[in-house]
């Protein structure tokens, strides 16, 4: 039986020290048993390493930044679709998800499929809303408060024990062990990322992550828990091991079941001194270490593509425990003519 061929566009080709998941997702797609994938890369910048990995990516196109708006994005995707006849797009950057969710209808009309969370799911798991999210779905999240004025800091002493984590709306965070440090972080972070500022209870413990896939109806299609073994100075996992923690799997099933999560995701968890898991963050897409899931028997990128195409997918229920991923850096040799081509024509 010949397998069907699918043209799949993937973003997030920035396999750098704070990596995008694109290259790992592509490796999963190329190992898929149910289809033959032809990969089209979508890149923002001309030095994203994935552009030059011709064994993984057959052709790459530059696409406009999300800040240019969905009309410009749609124009570009239409152009690419004419040439490549895309079946599925897998966006891998947080910042672009909003735009893709917004244009799902137009993409479907063109015959392109995506499989992303709903706008409500995307919004309610946002950092600013995470505390309410935890309350709504009975998931333990660190206590947090959104503040707009520096004078609000004084009330914090009643509600929080020091130290606390001071977080920006989009990026940046710091740990403060007294009110003066909170004040200085408030000023520093709000100057850069604007208001509000999020004050979060500091949870000490060990970091765990779990990646999975929800079918949008409350069913878990895949779930693989991992413990980070080596963390870079940017907080990224450079090595990790698959583990058999039933509590984490239960938590994931509860998360998917109660939110009816649609698409890939990663939960960042902190196990505190009472051995309880605290949910620190929900990433609304597959993580950069997704290839570990593929390696332990759950090809989440493949399952995601099949769900996008509306196929029935049998949930994965097992995976290999004690398998590790160890990330490494690899220097490719690239002729400047390739860089020239992507820089001047936006295609390679």
């Amino acid at each position: 039986m010949t397998r069907k061929k699918l043209n799949i566009a993937v973003t997030g080709l920035n396999a750098i020290d704070s990596p995008g998941p694109g290259v790992a997702v592509i490796r999963g797609l190329l190992e898929a048993k149910s289809f033959d994938a032809n990969i089209v890369g979508l890149a923002y910048e001309s030095l994203e390493p994935g552009i030059y990995m011709h064994n993984l990516v057959s052709k790459t196109y530059q696409v406009p930044y999300p800040s240019a708006g969905v009309d410009v994005l749609l124009d570009r995707l239409q152009f690419i679709h004419q040439k490549e006849h895309l079946d599925v797009i897998i966006p891998n950057f947080d910042a672009e998800l909003y735009s893709y969710i917004k244009i799902e209808g137009e993409l479907n009309a063109m015959g392109i499929h995506i499989f992303l969370p709903t706008m409500t799911q995307l919004e309610e798991r946002h950092k600013i809303n995470l505390f309410d999210f935890g309350k709504k779905y009975a998931i333990k999240v660190p206590k947090s408060k959104v503040i707009y004025e520096i004078s609000d800091i004084y009330d914090l002493q009643k509600e929080f024990e020091m130290p606390v984590v001071v977080k920006g709306k989009f990026y940046d965070a710091g740990i403060a062990s007294n009110i003066d440090q909170v004040k200085s972080l408030f000023k520093k972070i709000s100057a850069k990322w604007g208001l509000p500022i999020i004050i979060q209870e500091f949870v000490q413990g060990t970091e765990f992550n779990i990646t999975g896939l929800g079918d949008g109806k409350g069913n878990t299609i895949a779930a693989v828990p991992m413990r980070k073994q080596y963390i870079t100075d940017k907080g990224k996992a450079w090595g990790g091991i698959s583990i058999a923690d039933q509590t984490m799997l239960d938590l994931t099933n509860h998360f998917i079941g109660s939110t009816k999560w649609r698409g890939g995701f990663e939960l960042e968890l902190m196990k505190d001194k009472n051995n309880e898991f605290n949910l620190l963050e929900i990433n609304p897409r597959m993580p950069a270490w997704i290839y570990l899931a593929v390696g332990v028997g759950q090809n989440i990128p493949e399952a995601l593509v099949r769900m996008a195409l509306g196929e029935e997918v049998t949930p994965y229920t097992t995976y290999d425990i004690g398998k590790m991923f160890i990330r490494y850096a690899w220097d490719m040799i690239v002729d400047i003519s390739e860089f020239q081509k992507i820089s001047t024509s936006g295609e390679l």
Partner: peptide
């Protein structure tokens, strides 16, 4: 200087369009 308007300075390694 290429016909497509790409310039490369081999001494500094900088590229221009």
């Amino acid at each position: 200087i290429s016909e497509s308007g790409f310039m490369f300075n081999p001494i500094t390694g900088e590229s221009f369009t």
